[in-house]
């Protein structure tokens, strides 16, 4: 895959009043290839937004260089830039009397004439993009009547008709519910593959990024940007270094975050499969570590027959049968409160 975007020792930040640059992040060396779907992850305040704005050309870079299609970003003329980079932002569009078609067709603006009239070809492209983002039949729908997720798809369609090799999205899923997030990110991945576009997305959806991104860019204050295939970053402890805070642990095994509670005691749990997993999880939330070796009492045994129950054995040998995990937790916690 050939490179579309490349940065060399890039510093990003803002220029304050007297022209003094305030650097937020520096030494950024990263690249993005055609057809690649990359997710930019990082805690709040790491400078994700600043980096995104710099790469989209909204704010000037402070030092170093950004090369897009072999050309310095700062030297790309306005008209040409609008045909090279398209953006999708967090902000909501709330204009009355505007249909999906109206919004998407504005993506053709860099190509239309003085009054912005659409040609037959423009209209075909707009209709195609609306279908491509999964909004077939929605052309004449008022955008005010659409859900937030659908509205972001409209903006993605706008980016598609802008016909740029690079699409940059600044937290487009920020205010969406979980199913919409999954949908949007899957859609972007599909578009990167099928239409061979380079797509950069900043997001907080770590789980989704890990599963779907070709590359992950990790940004954190005071550390150099790390990027690579998500699995490599997990194995090299990247996520741990970048995200772990007091009380939040990244579990390299499951690829997700765990909230660490002070572990009280280890409990022997006997069992297998799904039930074992969820019982362990419930116990972990209460601060118990599960072990299958001989541990302290009480011990929990998960039934293997049809009748679902949990058998708890206490130190004195007394046994109790419980039906739900809720009862189980209550029973065990009671032992420790006494």
């Amino acid at each position: 895959m050939s490179l579309l975007l490349e940065t060399n020792n890039l510093s990003v930040g803002y220029f304050e009043k007297k022209g003094q640059p305030k650097c937020i992040h520096q030494n950024i060396n990263v690249s993005l290839a055609h057809g690649e779907f990359a997710c930019l992850l990082g805690p709040n305040g790491a400078g994700k937004s600043t980096l995104i704005k710099t790469l989209s050309g909204f704010i000037p870079l402070i030092d170093g260089e950004v090369i897009i299609n072999g050309q310095q970003l700062g030297e790309i003329r306005r008209e040409e830039r609008s045909k090279t980079i398209s953006v999708v932002l967090t902000e909501k569009l709330q204009t009355p009397n505007m249909t999906v078609f109206d919004v998407v067709s504005l993506g053709r603006v860099p190509y239309t004439g003085f009054f912005g009239r659409l040609t037959q070809n423009d209209e075909t492209l707009v209709e195609k993009a609306i279908v491509d983002v999964g909004l077939k039949g929605f052309s004449n729908r008022q955008i005010l009547q659409m859900s937030d997720g659908e509205r972001q798809k409209v903006m993605i369609a706008k980016a598609l008709v802008q016909d740029t090799p690079l699409i940059i999205l600044d937290e487009p899923t920020a205010f969406l519910d979980l199913p919409s997030r999954v949908e949007i990110i899957q859609l972007l991945r599909k578009l990167a593959k099928e239409q061979h576009k380079a797509i950069l997305l900043s997001t907080h959806d770590l789980d989704l990024a890990l599963q779907l991104a070709d590359k992950v860019w990790l940004l954190s204050q005071g550390k150099n940007l790390m990027y690579g295939v998500p699995e490599d970053l997990v194995l090299s402890d990247g996520f741990r270094q970048f995200f772990e805070k007091d009380g939040v642990l990244f579990d390299n095994e499951s690829g997700s975050f765990k909230v660490s509670a002070d572990e009280l005691k280890s409990i022997k749990v006997v069992g297998t499969g799904l039930e074992y997993k969820w019982v362990s999880r419930a116990l972990a939330r209460k601060g118990f570590k599960t072990t299958d070796e001989k541990g302290d009492y009480p011990a929990v045994e998960i039934s293997t027959d049809e009748k679902q129950h949990y058998r708890v054995t206490l130190a004195d040998g007394s046994q109790t049968y419980l039906r739900t995990i809720e009862d189980l937790l209550e029973h065990i916690c009671k032992q420790y409160d006494e």
Binding site: F58, K83, I85, E91, L93, L106, F114, F115, G116, Q162
Partner: peptide, 23 residues
């Protein structure tokens, strides 16, 4: 009447308008 196209682009808000090449 000469400002019709810029006015149309501004409907999307300044950030989108800027990205679409509007001065």
């Amino acid at each position: 009447c000469l400002l019709i196209k810029p006015l149309n682009i501004l409907v999307l808000g300044e950030n989108y308008a800027y990205n679409l090449g509007l001065n």
